[in-house]
Design a protein around this nucleic acid. Structure first.
Lengths: 234, 234
DNA sequence: ATGAAACCTTGACCCCCGTCAAGTTTTGGC
DNA sequence: GCCAAAACTTGACGGGGGTCAAGGTTTCAT
């Protein structure tokens, strides 16, 4: 189990848990009475910045739903290097992998700032899946999205040059946010580990892109894409 | 839709389809009458070696269950290079990604030899998921396995050296087959694209491993692991 | 507000490995 | 069983980018 230094337990009013459930795509299609049934089976937990929510090797506590704040999921490679897998935002959930396999977690979850979560235990979640099959379809949809995204990511790291990966990351982010001015959601170090390069290379490539007139770096985290077409030609 | 040169349709006796369903983990827990209900909603299809079963950009036909033969799933990167995602064997299924997202396929499926499949259309499959929620749990389990495997793969390609990736691939294969003598399931080219390197590098590294006394190459595809511990130390 | 810790940038070095090429072996369709 | 096509091996070469180092900047806990 996670070594909980001091994570607030049970400070969850029904009000807060209600919000928690109602913002999650996998539950928010249910009717009010079904929702309150589910709410009864969740607990609120809060973690301070930097706190580990679960460890590789932990057995599954259950399903974690992010209510406020952001959570970083990463894994350690066999040689001990950290790779950032993804960042969870409010409405996202995690903990699922070990929910269905009876295996231990194979990744780490860490609070990137103060985080509030709703937690549902494994058995209750599985019960709800059987009772309300529509939830399963939602979760299946979410899984298949994630699988597609992860496979795409793996293909990119395997086949594209570093320039291309960085350019595509920026392009994806811009598309996701619907804006050519974007704010990087993480440090160079984390970004580097996510796309399979080094922080130094990121700095250098971004400087190159700026010299070429494709982007403008307004601050370390703020980037404006000036010429998307050129950027995507590598 | 896929350009079907000549793939046998409807040559599926009920007998054959029954076998098809009964070997698939996602269905084989059902009782006989439920199974025959499902069998009624599947069609048999066969494809010759090299034939494309579905294309990137195809809309989903449904769920494909491999009955005989092997199927190679690959994707083309933005820059046009091929990456092998995975190889399907009898009992595996595919086509799922677009089943839940209403999106087009983002990968290719190709018959590696003569292949026999059972196909179920999208609507029928979703109906069965709602009718028999236990199937959903099975599919969720399968998805979460695959997600875990793909994330692990992405982390490896991102963080490990080429030597390590090749060594780990061999080690994984040996563990999967429970034998230190393994037969590579694919060509050097496909293996290279799978683990993010070039065929030449694979040849060279395997030669190095053999020189170091860690493996023995009995033939191009037959490899015996002599010193697993040394191999995993890179 | 302030100092320490974390983060970012830039330079120098150099090695890993991708690419091209040419010769050899294996595969599989007839 | 044959022969063309595909797959594999080995060599040579060069550049992309990882690593180490040093100095500047931002962040954040107190």
């Amino acid at each position: 189990m996670t070594d909980n230094g001091h994570c607030g337990h049970g400070d969850g009013s029904v009000e807060m848990q209600k919000m928690c459930i109602s913002i999650v795509p996998i539950f928010n299609h249910l009717n009010p009475s079904e929702m309150s049934e589910i709410i009864k089976h969740t607990n609120s937990v809060s973690h301070p910045r930097g706190h580990t929510i679960y460890h590789e090797g932990d057995t599954s506590d259950g399903l974690y739903i992010i209510h406020k704040g952001r959570v970083k999921i990463y894994r350690l490679s066999e040689s001990g290097k950290e790779q950032l897998v993804r960042i969870l935002e409010p409405g996202d959930f995690t903990g699922e992998l070990s929910l269905f396999n009876e295996t231990v977690h194979d990744a780490y979850a860490e609070a990137m700032g103060k985080v509030e979560l709703c937690v549902m235990n494994r058995e209750d979640f599985q019960t709800f899946l059987l009772k309300y099959p529509a939830i399963s379809l939602k979760v299946l949809g979410e899984f298949s999205n994630r699988l597609a995204k992860t496979e795409k990511q793996a293909a990119r790291i395997a086949m594209e040059t570093t320039d291309t990966r960085i350019a595509m990351y920026l392009a994806d982010l811009a598309e996701e946010r619907n804006s050519s001015r974007i704010k990087l959601p993480m440090t160079r170090k984390d970004l580097a580990s996510h796309i399979g390069t080094s922080p130094e290379t990121i700095s250098r490539k971004l400087a190159e892109f700026e010299d070429a007139g494709w982007i403008r770096q307004h601050s370390q985290r703020e980037i404006e894409i000036v010429d998307m077409d050129a950027l995507l030609l590598v």
